[in-house]
Design a binder for these strands. Structure first.
Lengths: 215, 215
DNA sequence: TCTTAATTAGTCCAGATTGGACGATTTTAC
DNA sequence: GTAAAATCGTCCAATCTGGACTAATTAAGA
């Protein structure tokens, strides 16, 4: 994912320098990490700058303020996630719905593992109403939701997926992957399952497929 | 749940007054709410005192400091949850494992709905290692985990629950209930499902039973 | 009822942190 | 070489931090 352009400067008379792109990426990565750990309110811009190893006034320079930094960081993360998902799906033939669903689940597990911050941020923003949540839903969550639920209905008609409200089913799958992976430390503490281990990760994906696509 | 005793005073020469119990409960409720929204770091003791409508130095008086307040609040919440669960289970005959499992799931859904803060706090504390997480696992998470996983193994042998690692299965059930309910606002935004509605809540419980206890 | 411990109210503090502003300096594209 | 882009260093005013302290109030036990 390459930044289209600096999020701030409107009409550059000279093109953006390479190092500024690096700085922005470092800030965005650090922001996702920090926000996912401590929430929007609990995260200071100085904390983000320190994690990124960047002088903190550069946040103002590149992103104007904390709100816009949050939005840019979330945008990047969700775009990466959704693009990975759609790309993986595009490589599976349309004619085999069960195979498509299986690829979707395995890809979702893989992406959720490489970006556990996503689920944490969604959950945090679901704590109370906010502009950030509205934006998240409208921009990234609802589009994917509608795409997947339509396909889930087909799977249910074919007897591949369990009956019932497909929206609930979608969310159960989602939390069984993303929500469970975000609990990595806790699960390691209670059960000695290490979801950093590729084999255990595959086992989780197998299990989700088995449970949610029994047909 | 009644507080055994004031968490601070060691040897009261005169018994604890009723109003102090009320103050403590108000503080504990407010603390759970605040911590679940903004995390430990993102929550100030003053914020908690304001939510509880209590003068903030009373936190020092009743709980000594922020850490101990967090622990007392979490302890209360988890005890309530686990006790509800065990109580419900004790009313089901031992001889019918499937009925027991179904009661467990429906009770878990009901409790998770009445206390969505629990899942949020677990997830927050799973972000990075801490004494709080260690304590949570050892005191409340692991005991329940071991209890349930043993019963899950029986269900798997009977062909009632799907095959696979029972620890993963347990956690999938847990997040399908608690994790999904904690996402209430998001789910309402994407799908118009209102999990405050008792019928929709029952539908979720039905779905979890259907998916995880197909046998 | 009276005494006194338990609880609360009110105030204060010193220090840290907050998001953000600003000019001086360095780096790099053209 | 030069001017724009990016970074640095420093500053600020406001707010918030957890906690300390004394005086006032309430209620338990004799």
């Amino acid at each position: 994912m390459i930044a289209d352009q600096s999020p701030v400067a409107p009409n550059p008379a000279r093109k953006q320098q390479q190092r500024s792109i690096v700085t922005q990426q470092k800030l965005l990565d650090a922001a996702i990490q920090a926000f996912s750990e401590n929430g929007f309110k609990g995260t200071s811009t100085r904390d983000i700058a320190e994690r990124a190893d960047v002088h903190h006034p550069l946040i103002t320079y590149h992103f104007k303020n904390k709100d816009l930094l949050w939005r840019a960081a979330a945008d990047r993360m969700f775009k990466q996630f959704n693009v990975s998902l759609i790309k993986a799906m595009s490589e599976v033939p349309e004619v085999d719905p069960k195979a498509r669903a299986e690829v979707f689940i395995r890809t979702y597990v893989r992406c959720a593992h490489s970006q556990p911050a996503m689920h944490k941020i969604i959950l945090q923003e679901s704590s109370y109403p906010s502009d950030r949540l509205d934006w998240l839903i409208a921009t990234h969550l609802k589009p994917l939701f509608e795409l997947v639920v339509d396909q889930l209905k087909v799977l249910q008609e074919l007897g591949i997926a369990p009956a019932g409200n497909p929206a609930l089913l979608y969310n159960m799958i989602r939390v069984s992957a993303g929500g469970l992976l975000a609990l990595g430390l806790e699960i390691k503490g209670t059960s000695d399952i290490d979801l950093e281990d590729q084999r255990e990760l595959d086992e989780l994906a197998d299990m989700i497929v088995r449970v949610f696509l029994p047909g």
